[in-house]
Structure formats: structure tokens, C-alpha cells
Design a protein around this nucleic acid. Sequence first.
DNA 1: CGTTTCGTTGAAGAGTGTCAAGGCCAGTGG
DNA 2: CCACTGGCCTTGACACTCTTCAACGAAACG
Lengths: 247, 247
Amino acid sequence: MAVPSTCLASLRVACSNCNLRELCLPVGLSGTELGQVEQIVATRRKIRRGEALFRAGDRFESLYAVRLGFLKSTLMSPDGHEQVTGFHMAGEVVGLDGISAEAHTCDTVALEDTEVCVLPYERLEEIAAAVPSLQNNLRKVMSREIVREHGVMLLLGSMRAEERLAAFLLNLSQRFEARGYSRTEFVLRMTRAEIGSFLGLKLETVSRALSHFAQDGLIEVEQKHLRILDSDRLRAVLGSSVSKEAH
Amino acid sequence: MAVPSTCLASLRVACSNCNLRELCLPVGLSGTELGQVEQIVATRRKIRRGEALFRAGDRFESLYAVRLGFLKSTLMSPDGHEQVTGFHMAGEVVGLDGISAEAHTCDTVALEDTEVCVLPYERLEEIAAAVPSLQNNLRKVMSREIVREHGVMLLLGSMRAEERLAAFLLNLSQRFEARGYSRTEFVLRMTRAEIGSFLGLKLETVSRALSHFAQDGLIEVEQKHLRILDSDRLRAVLGSSVSKEAH
DNA sequence: CGTTTCGTTGAAGAGTGTCAAGGCCAGTGG
DNA sequence: CCACTGGCCTTGACACTCTTCAACGAAACG
């Protein structure tokens, strides 16, 4: 449990060479600062599809910056129900939940083969104390996570099934685009059940909504492969509940 | 907009005298550290019921520690729907959402006359740089907010109306108890509509669920006044959806 | 190539939302 | 002091969205 079964790559990591540095913790840092930040990254770690990066209850030791791949975070409710709280892709930092109680509070599992930079928290604290802009970036990353979750609360609290799914697809689209991938064509790494869990819906509802969008020509979907055909109309789905009321 | 219309109390504040210090940012700090932290608190600010502490879009300048009173944070969806993202009481820190974009992303409004300590963020950063345990506490407060929101996602994503309400009441109960108030008898400062917004329900559903709990002898409710009669059975409501499945 | 997981679709039913009417309470002005 | 007003809450009846249950097909995996 202390030593993860997954491969520990001991090669030295250079943020300066990483094409994610503009999305990741060291965003906006100067060359010399970058050098200091590179001292944080102890190792990289590979997680194969289906394996956990960490589990709820594990001692909190590190944050992780996703280099490559795709993960989900899940919470287990007392009655055994699994709630997906987020999906994570390259450039995003995971493990922030562990800081408060010095233990992780959710499971984070790879949905495809994934590679992360391991950022030992103690070392991160030390370096951040010496590099104000890193300190600042860390707080911004945490704040952004809070804002993101507010958005999810809005989604879960006030949207209906198709609005939720549209918002979800558009969000994915935008995140892929920010990483240099196509914003109109991508692969859903997660299952319908996982999408449903995240959106507070059953997998059948997700499937039906996808079929409906496809039938209306908003998207094309074949298994996990998704193509957005009409992002404007997909965006319009978000405001659809109003158009009925505000006549 | 820059200068709030609410009263600025210029009297010097002493965390060391504050009976909330065990719940608030300076938790666990030594006497000398406490002295430094007190330099952060510039002023207190009073917000009357219905007034905003800050609004979405306001420039982010300070965090706020609630000294007294009760607030809600709300997000406005593009279609004009208001989503409550949280309720805040004494000892809690609000405004964390503003750090990421240097602007607030939600409205935070007093539900009763409220008093907060104003913590100018720049000064907070300076002092935190010199007081590691404060630095640490700030990150823990942020992380705790992330964990809290995970819990809300679980609630919104997987519970039904009465489970949500039970979870909500028990959460309030526990927070009141932590502040030295009764855990069985308290006043709901928010309206049914605000509870509903937070829980992803309509106000009628909240009202019906409360009536149902009252009818079953779990609670007593008269307007905003609430008394928990049987917290065990209220807790049992949370797991009720299982008992049907796991026969 | 069988087994398992995942996805789609239909039909029926439960849980909430919607709409509407009425009651209670606090604040306001006559 | 009382009537009036507006906000808040409760309750009922009905509509609708989403879930549940079930069957089947397709893809992934050993």
C-alpha cells in the first residue's frame, strides 16, 4: 500500500522541456524559477488503465501533475454508490483533496494508460516558500478547482439531462482544444455509466441523450468516438429551458 | 462599487481574543504567530441582511472570515437561474473562488446581519510567507472547501429528495454543534427556495419533505425554527435507498 | 471463440416539477 | 390599532422527466 505497484520511472524530469508547462503548475515562471521548480518533480509514475493513482484513505504525500492520459476521481457513498467527481487530463493537477486531512478522500483511477509527475508535497512546500510565483500558482490551481466545482454544482442543481450532457461535451471539447487536440472530434475515455455518474444521470439516460443529439445532427457518435457537428446548436441546448419559459 | 456601502469598523481586531480561532484560519498557531496573523486583519465589516459581501465580477482583494451571522453564495446561470453553492457561518472563510482569476465568481450575500474580518489578500500572502503554519492552514482551508464540494456533488448526483434534505439538516446540525450551539434546535436562516436551490430541488419538494419528516416524528418544524427529534432515524434516511436494493 | 463488459432501445412506473390556491407572518401606512 | 401588502410557506392535482427493468446487440478480452 505504501509502495505502489506501478512503475517508478526515475529519469529526471524537465518542466522546461514539457509542452504542458503553460497549462501546469509552472505557468508563467521565469527560467531560473523553472529550474527550482524542476527540483520538486521527484519521479514520474506510470499508471496502467484501471489502476489507481491513489485511493481514499491513502496517506497524502504528493500532488500529481498529469503528463499524459486520462483519469477519473470517484467518491464512494456509504451505501456503495460510486460518484464520479471529475475527469482529469494532461496538464491538470490532482490530489488537492488530500491536503486538508493529510489523507486522500477520493479514489483517482486511470481510464487509459497514464503518466504523472510526482510532486512530493513537502518538497513542494519548501520550493514554494522560496518561489513566490509558484506559491501563487499553487493557490490559483486550488482556487480554480473550487470554481470548477461550483460550475458542476450549477450543472447538477439546475440543468436537465440533455443540458447536462451538452455542457459536459462542450467542456471536454474546450479542454481538448486547449491542449492542441481537435475540439470537434475526440474519444470518450470513460463509459456511459461514468458519464452518468458524473452528471447525476443513469447510463441509459446518457445513451438516449447521445442518440437524440446524433439524430438531430448535433453530433456523430460511434461507441467512444465522438464528433461535434454543430457546436452552436449544442450550445443552444444549454439555454433551451428558458426559451420555453421566456415566451 | 470600489467602496462598499456597508459600515467599516476600524477597531483593531485580536484573533487571540476571538472565540472562533479554533475554527478559523489561525487554528493551532502559537502566541507569537498569532500576533503576526493579527496584522492581517485590517478591519471588520458589517453586512446587513440582504446585502452582498461581494458580487461576481468584483475585483478580488480580500478573503473574509465570518465572525458572526450567516451568508449564502450563489452562482447565476446564463439563463438567469440562481444556484446556491453554499451557506457560510461563523469561523468559515469565504472568497476563495476569487483567487484564481483575481475576481470573484459568485455573489455572497448575508442572510442575517453579519460581521466579517477582512483579510486583504496581499497582506495575507506576505504574512503567510513568514509564518509557515499559516501558509499551511490557508491551503488546508482551501482543500477542505474542495472536499466539501465533492460531498455536495455526491449529494446532488446520487441522492433523492429526502436523502438530500436529511444530509443537509445533519450537516447544519453538526456545524452548529461545532460552534457551541444546540445541535438539535436551530433556526434556518435561509428560505425554502434557497435550500431547494442548494439541494437541486424545488421549494415545494423541500416543503413536502420537511412536512413528511415532521409527520414521521423525525423533526419538528415551525416556519424557520427547526428541532431534530430523532437524529438516528434522520441519519437512517441517508441509507434508505440501499435497504430496498440490498434485500 | 466464448465470456464479459459496454451500449442501445423499448415499455412501464416512480419521483419531482409545475401550476394553482390559500394561509401565515412581518412590515407599512392609514 | 387595524387593514393592507408582499414575501414565504404549505398542500393538492396533474404533467413530465428520468429511472427502472428487460432484452438484445456489439465490442473487448483472455
